[in-house]
Design a protein around this nucleic acid. Structure first.
Length: 351
DNA sequence: AACCGAAGCAACCGCCCACGA
DNA sequence: ATCGTGGGCGGTTGCTTCGGT
C-alpha cells in the first residue's frame, strides 16, 4: 500500500548526531509529560527540529534512563549467542532478555564482535553450524575410515583403531592440501575441523574446551560431532595413501608433517586446551592406546577380534586418483567416488 | 607528525505489521 | 473490508576513533 515517510523530507528536519541541547529537550519533555505520547507529534511539542522517528530512536537507544553502558560481559555474550541460535536476527527479542541493552546495541555488537568470533571458530554465524563454506570438508562423513572399512571382505578382521588413526592422518593431510590448493588459508584450526568431521567416536578422544565467552551449547553442538583422536606422522600412512597425496603434500607443505606456523587465524580463538596452535597440532602424536581389533561379521556390526588384520585397510583406495597438482576437479572426482558414503544408510551399514 | 585503513557505533532508511477509524 | 497511521524492526550507512606505518 505504501506509506508516506514518517518525516517530511522537505521540511528541513535536522539529521545526524544529536547535540546535548537536543538530548535535554527530549529528556525534559518525556519526563514532564510522563511518557513520549505520540512520537510523530513529539518533536513539535518538545521544540525539536527532528522527525519523530529520530526522537524515538534517540530515546530508546541512548537516552532511556535504564540503558546499561559499557562492555558486554562474558555472560551477556554467551546469552546473545545462545539466543541468536534460537531466534536469529530478532534483535528486539534478544534485547528483552538482556536488561539495559538495546536491540541496536546488541545488533552492533553482534556484527562487529560476535560474528567475527564465531567465524574464527569455524562456526557459521547464521546457522550456528560449522561454516557452510567449509561444509565440503565438514560433510565428509569419516570418508576414509568408512571407505577403508568398506574394502574389508566379510568376516575378516582389522585393527580398527589403527585404521581410524591412519584415516585421521590421511584426512588431516587431505584437508591441508585442499585448503592450500584452493588458495584458502585455513580459517579454522585443522585439528578442530577434523574434530568436527571425524565420526569414529573411538578412544583417544581429545575434547577441546570452549574459549572464554564462547557459547557452550553451540560449542558442544560442534563437538557432538566426534572428536579427532590423534594424528600419527604421515610416514605411518600406507604407501597407497601416501602416494596419493605425495605430490600435493610435498609441493604444499615441504613434506608431510611439517608445521604450518603463522598460517591462518590463531587457533587460540578456537579454544583448544593443550595443543592450542598449529605447530602443536602437527607435533608427533601421543602414545597410542592398545588398539582394539574388530571383525566385520558381514551383518553391519563389528565385534571384538584378536585375529591378525587381513591387510592394509587402505588397500583399494589407490583408485582415488589425485593429481600431483591437486585441483578442484580431482577433489570433485574424489567426492563423487565416495558420494555414496554420504548416504546415512550406507554409513549405518559400515558401523 | 601525518597519513591511511580498519573497526566501532550512532543514526538513518525503508519495509512490515498491528490497530483503529 | 479497506485504508491510513503509528510504531517496531532489521539492514545499512557514514562519521569518528584507533592503531599501524
Amino acid at each position: 500500500m505504501g506509506r508516506s515517510p514518517c518525516c517530511d523530507q522537505d521540511a528541513g528536519v535536522k539529521k545526524g548526531p544529536w547535540t546535548p541541547e537536543e538530548d535535554k529537550l527530549l529528556v525534559d519533555y518525556i519526563k514532564d509529560s510522563k511518557g513520549h505520547g505520540s512520537w510523530r507529534r513529539l518533536p513539535k511539542l518538545a521544540g525539536l527540529n527532528r522527525c519523530g522517528k529520530s526522537c524515538r530512536l534517540r530515546w530508546t537507544n541512548y537516552l532511556r534512563p535504564d540503558i546499561k553502558r559499557g562492555r558486554f560481559t562474558d555472560e551477556e555474550e554467551k546469552l546473545i549467542i545462545h539466543l541468536h541460535s534460537i531466534l536469529g536476527n530478532k534483535w528486539s527479542s534478544i534485547a528483552t532478555k538482556l536488561p539495559g541493552r538495546t536491540d541496536n546495541e546488541i545488533k552492533n555488537y553482534w556484527n562487529t564482535h560476535l560474528r567475527k568470533k564465531l567465524l574464527s571458530m569455524g562456526i557459521d554465524p547464521v546457522t550456528h553450524r560449522p561454516r557452510t563454506d567449509l561444509s565440503l570438508l565438514a560433510g565428509i562423513p569419516n570418508l576414509l575410515t568408512a571407505a577403508a572399512a568398506a574394502q574389508q571382505p566379510p568376516n575378516t578382521c582389522w585393527d580398527i583403531n589403527a585404521l581410524r588413526l591412519q584415516a585421521d592422518a590421511a584426512k588431516y593431510q587431505l584437508l591441508q592440501g585442499l585448503l592450500r590448493a584452493l588458495s584458502a588459508p585455513p580459517a579454522v584450526d585443522l585439528m578442530a575441523l577434523l574434530a568436527a568431521t571425524n565420526n569414529n567416536g573411538g578412544g583417544l578422544v581429545t575434547q577441546p574446551q570452549p574459549a572464554a565467552g564462547v557459547d557452550h551449547q553451540q560449542y558442544d553442538g560442534l563437538l557432538n560431532l566426534p572428536a579427532l583422536t590423534s594424528v600419527p606422522p604421515a610416514t605411518t600412512l600406507p604407501a597407497a595413501m601416501s602416494s596419493s597425496f605425495s605430490g600435493l603434500l610435498s609441493s604444499s607443505f615441504g613434506g608431510a608433517g611439517s608445521a604450518l606456523a603463522g598460517d591462518g587465524l590463531s587457533s587460540t580463538d578456537l579454544g583448544h586446551s593443550g595443543s592450542s596452535n598449529m605447530t602443536a597440532a602437527m607435533a608427533p602424536p601421543p602414545p597410542l592406546v592398545v588398539a582394539a581389533k574388530e571383525c566385520n561379521n558381514g551383518g553391519g556390526t563389528s565385534t571384538p577380534c584378536d585375529d591378525t588384520p587381513a591387510s592394509s585397510p587402505f588397500e583399494g583406495l589407490e583408485n582415488i586418483n589425485l593429481d600431483d597438482e591437486f585441483n578442484s576437479d580431482s577433489w570433485k572426482d574424489l567426492l563423487e567416488q565416495m558420494s555414496w558414503l554420504n548416504n546415512p544408510n550406507d554409513q549405518q551399514q559400515l558401523m
